[in-house]
Design a protein around this nucleic acid. Structure first.
Lengths: 218, 218
DNA sequence: GACATTGGTGTCTTTCTGTTACTAATTCGC
DNA sequence: GCGAATTAGTAACAGAAAGACACCAATGTC
């Protein structure tokens, strides 16, 4: 294979209605499946994740807050029949998660996806696994929230990604010990209950004590 | 860019002389750098990691014990001038780490690399970061050891990857609690000191209790 | 045989985590 | 108004996990 056709297939994730959702675009009429991942060919000299960012921005109107290459797949059928697909994971905050006007893109919860081409299905799976694995290596939960947020919202994102409930007190104790967030002097009251203080992501560069090895794997 | 030239660039890592080392091949005479990553074009219909495994096997004589795609890079100069490089991380155990006879490939410790083409340098960095990040998500340390090993050797691999010393008692306590290894009835005495029992990697499928969130990042 | 060297374990202390319970501030129903 | 319901936030205790230290075991070296 001297020369190959290449696509950048983008998995844009954002929290919608208490579930992680992915942005899909309608497939051209005549295709076997009705929806697919947004994609485009990489431009000459353009970095792969820059291409992914460009593709997502065209649909969202906003630039994703985190873009990462997550897999290269050459098996399975691609809707456009390209030889190699480069998977790109893009995260978009809850508030900036509306498809741009005029685009027919739509959000689908990860647990209620429509039929996808085999190639796109494989990249989706890689991306949804990757986003859960990466959260212990980088503060990606903050990329799914607006600049200021309540601690309840932050915990909600963690519970979404981990797929399990967390204890409020333990969560906050560990969070504050890590010095990752800074309180603002703004409180937000939404509906009933006590107003919650807004925080912003502002990590203090502080090397915590190196801890032991974990032998438990996901 | 309708059609692009694509290379699979392979970063093969193995422990050599108490350091992580990477397998490099001499660059063709006339090239700017003298060494480079082994690479080849992907074959039609061949999966990316299968291509990486094939490229590594041709130099090692053995199949790597773990192969994983780790990055797609289009910036920087590639020795063969291809448009897109797919990075593949391959791990090889300590004992099977001799370059195949007749090949001019050689091992270089990660902290004493020769000059590399910019593209290869970028992929090297991605791979060496990835191997350290993945070790909390999969038991990759065992892929760098032969089938049976002493606990001192296993701890040595962890210290190599983490770049810091670990406490012997704590390491073993956590390891045994995880039920990842099984003792054999073979002891090995090498030089001075008490002989060490050999263990094999034999994880018992046991779901540990779900623990809290970690807010510390590497 | 004393000693250095490496392997392996027991145990104490410190730190971390899970849980329960409590206080605080707001809206809703009456 | 005023209490009930609801959500935010924290204190404090108990159990678990991790770090540190000590100690014993088995081998080679001198």
């Amino acid at each position: 294979m001297r020369r190959a056709t290449v696509a950048v297939d983008v998995v844009t994730l954002s929290p919608r209605d208490d579930a992680l959702a992915v942005l899909l675009v309608p497939a051209p009429s005549g295709a076997r499946e009705r929806w697919g991942l947004p994609w485009d060919g990489p431009r000459t000299g353009e970095a792969i994740d820059v291409a992914g960012s460009r593709i997502a921005r065209a649909l969202l109107g906003n630039t994703p807050t985190l873009v990462e290459q997550v897999g290269a797949v050459s098996e399975g059928h691609h809707p456009a029949g390209v030889d190699i697909s480069l998977g790109v994971l893009a995260l978009s905050p809850r508030d900036a998660a509306a498809p741009a006007a005029g685009s027919a893109a739509a959000w689908f919860p990860l647990d209620a996806l429509p039929a996808l081409a085999p190639r796109h299905r494989a990249i989706m799976d890689l991306a949804s696994i990757a986003v859960r694995l990466r959260m212990e290596q980088a503060p990606i939960a903050f990329h799914l929230l607006p600049a200021t947020f309540t601690l309840g919202e932050l915990q909600g994102i963690y519970e979404l990604l981990l797929g399990r409930r967390l204890h409020k007190a333990s969560f906050r104790r560990a969070l504050h010990a890590s010095r990752l967030v800074q309180p603002t002097d703004v409180w937000r009251s939404e509906g009933r209950g006590r107003p919650a203080q807004l925080f912003r992501f502002a990590p203090k560069k502080r090397r915590g004590p190196q801890r032991g090895v974990r032998f438990e794997f996901p």
